[in-house]
């Protein structure tokens, strides 16, 4: 028996909106510690890891570990039927081939339940070791989204370079080139507008903008995004999900031919 009640149901709507274009089908893993997901995009270039810790739910009952295979587009369709301020409850029986999403309005005058068929998904689970990064950039998520969107009108790839001077996003295409430099800005008055750069060593990596743009669908979840870089390793783009967890996108770099 699984029963997860999330008062901030809008968070789950935003999580699905940020996943559904990158991943078609995925297993949600439910255990005593939380509700999580790990999935790759269909071309195995990017990976997403989601964790919503059990403490973040108003009620969290998970009698035994369960894996719920869901089509994320269909799940997003169902969650779109919830209002942003609805309380969302996810329910499933151990042997059931379906999951129920219950939506309650904050004043309890409307209660809806949507039942969705589960799928058997044969997915590969990857072990991601804890890594020390050469550079970690924390910046406003809206600013990062704007940069990715702007650069993708010029080129297909972005070179992210971190130096003492700041973080530089560069692209080149048929019509020309573009460079955007963001300098460190502690923004003490408005911490959500801060850009903080922790650099052990300068680093420069190239990534496909198509995937970066897809990751920025998570922008409504968090004011800040963290971009962690190390030479010859995938970049990690992380958005915090309120106080309860995170959504992390991993993207393999491009290398010169």
């Amino acid at each position: 028996m699984l029963e997860l009640r999330l008062v901030q149901g809008g968070l789950l709507k935003k999580v699905l909106e940020s996943l559904k274009d990158l991943v078609n089908d995925a297993n949600f893993d439910c255990s005593a510690s939380g509700f999580s997901l790990q999935a790759m995009d269909s071309s195995h270039v990017a990976l997403v890891a989601l964790l919503l810790r059990s403490e973040g739910f108003e009620h969290y009952r998970c009698d035994r570990n369960l894996s719920l295979g869901m089509n994320l587009n269909n799940m997003a369709k169902m969650l779109k039927c919830a209002a942003n301020d609805d309380i969302v409850t996810i329910k499933a029986d151990d042997a059931s081939d379906s999951v129920t999403f219950m939506f309650e309005s904050p004043n309890q005058d409307k209660i809806a339940d949507f039942e969705m068929k589960l799928m058997d998904i044969d997915s590969e689970h990857l072990g991601i070791p804890e890594a020390e990064f050469q550079a970690i950039v924390r910046m406003p998520s809206a600013e990062f989204a704007r940069i990715c969107k702007d650069l993708s009108t010029i080129g297909d790839t972005v070179v992210i370079s971190v130096t003492k001077e700041g973080v530089k996003f560069s692209t080149r295409g048929d019509i020309g080139t573009a460079n955007i430099v963001c300098r460190q800005n502690p923004s003490i008055d408005k911490p959500e507008e801060a850009t903080i750069i922790e650099m052990e060593e300068p680093v420069s990596l190239t990534f496909a903008l198509r995937y970066m743009n897809s990751f920025t669908k998570a922008t409504p979840l968090a004011n800040q995004v963290t971009i962690s870089l190390s030479a010859d390793l995938p970049v990690v783009v992380e958005y915090r999900v309120a106080e309860m967890g995170y959504i992390r996108f991993y993207l393999a770099p491009k290398i010169e031919e």
């Binding site: 790759m40 071309s43 195995h44 270039v45 990017a46 990976l47 590969e124 689970h125 990857l126 072990g127 991601i128 070791p129 297909d156 790839t157 190239t206 496909a208 390793l233 995938p234 991993y250 993207l251 393999a252 770099p253 491009k254 290398i255 010169e256 031919e257």
Partner: peptide, 14 residues
């Protein structure tokens, strides 16, 4: 431009 690496080249199956 460039060769796109796969994520599975970096992380092992568990």
């Amino acid at each position: 431009t460039g060769i796109q690496l796969n994520i599975t080249e970096f992380y092992r199956s568990t």
